[in-house]
Design a protein around this nucleic acid. Structure first.
Lengths: 209, 209
DNA sequence: ATTAGACTGAACCCATGGGTTCAGAAGTGT
DNA sequence: ACACTTCTGAACCCATGGGTTCAGTCTAAT
């Protein structure tokens, strides 16, 4: 019966967390399309399929709602990016780095160009909430750079890249990939990725014969 | 007397424009440190040294205030960046591209790291104001890329860079410069600039012997 | 069946702040 | 001196919306 009690608690807790997550997701969706100022909590409640007091039952106020919603979405986006980078793990042993880097780059860029990722970038910096920008950067950019640096270090060690600072190399590859999105929000993603890998390999590829 | 009348009109118009600009500058300063939602028009008026009705005498409403303030600041920042790029004009004839590009890069990066430029980037994307982001991108990023592409094209034609698409090359150099600011907001600017030029020249420099 | 906890919906309170009005001051051209 | 425009400062109106309260409902565990 101890197990039944704890099961019951787990179910309840699970239910609570699900609902909380639904609220955060709804909040993120509304904030993303309306901005902070134009968003009213009632609309968030509707989006989440929940009554307004329920929102305040899970979150303290509008600002917490914003912070936690953005951070939660940042975690999702960060995880997708990490997954795209991690595909370099097995593939690294294979043939020329251009193919394997190209595939990872295209995957990464698709995630970064996704509506959710764009919204995270917009909402993170805006609205002067102390610490939020740093927190989101930690959960996305820095984590991704670190994961990519790991992979590049292995490539360099294997002689497929020239010796370099992996952190800096990762940063360069990432800005070559995602930077152009700021200049051409709706360009061909694969073309951007290929151009980025091209430049990256000319700069960091192994000394050619 | 026609001249006197027109002089009078000019003085008045000048006075009006000055005051309008003072209001826009004050608005930008307050929006930059408070964000849109937390900013009240009264504070803008105080910052500009003006009474609240005077603000509404020059601008229609809070949203116009925001748009025009951001666009005005974007114009200033854009002009400074163009100036930094334009120093490639005379210097282009000189010695190795590394020195001349490095100097321009450091100048450009200083402007982009400036508080005003950071604020423009923050405020431009935020707050779901249709068209504002595009307008600011037009006044800054695209203009700068275009100016830089002009200079790079001349360098390529002079054989100091390998043949390339100047627009794309300019974009790559710019993201290598400004991208790292997102990852390390307070790193050594000159180090970033040098690393960017280094990578850029390995990718776009003339075929080495 | 009972009890406990979460959820609902609607009404409610009220601080905030956008935008306006107005009477008068101050500067300007004639 | 006179008229004209602009600016001031203070008060004012009022829509918006954050946050709360409450009485009643639903679910689930015992």
């Amino acid at each position: 019966m101890g197990s039944e009690v704890s099961t019951g608690h787990r179910r309840k807790a699970r239910g609570r967390d699900d609902r909380r997550q639904a609220i955060l997701d709804g909040a993120f969706a509304v904030f993303a399309r309306r901005g902070y100022a134009q968003t009213c909590v009632k609309e968030i409640a509707q989006e989440a399929g929940v009554a307004k007091p329920t929102v305040y039952n899970h979150l303290n106020d509008k600002e917490s709602l914003y912070r936690e919603a953005v951070e939660s979405a940042a975690d999702r986006v960060g995880a997708q990016c990490i997954a795209a980078v991690e595909q370099l793990r097995e593939a690294a042993a294979d043939g020329d780095p251009r193919a394997v880097l190209g595939a990872a780059a295209r995957g990464l860029l698709r995630v970064c160009h996704d509506e959710e990722a764009r919204a995270v970038r917009r909402l993170a910096g805006a609205e002067a909430m102390p610490g939020l920008a740093a927190s989101v950067r930690e959960r996305t950019a820095l984590r991704i750079r670190s994961a990519l640096a790991d992979r590049l270090a292995r490539l360099a060690l294997a002689g497929r890249l020239r010796p370099c600072d992996p952190e800096l190399a990762a940063e360069h590859l990432l800005v070559l990939l995602t930077g152009p999105l700021e200049y051409r929000p709706d360009a061909d993603l694969d073309a951007i990725a290929d151009a980025a890998v091209d430049v990256f390999l000319r700069a960091y590829g192994e000394e050619h014969a």
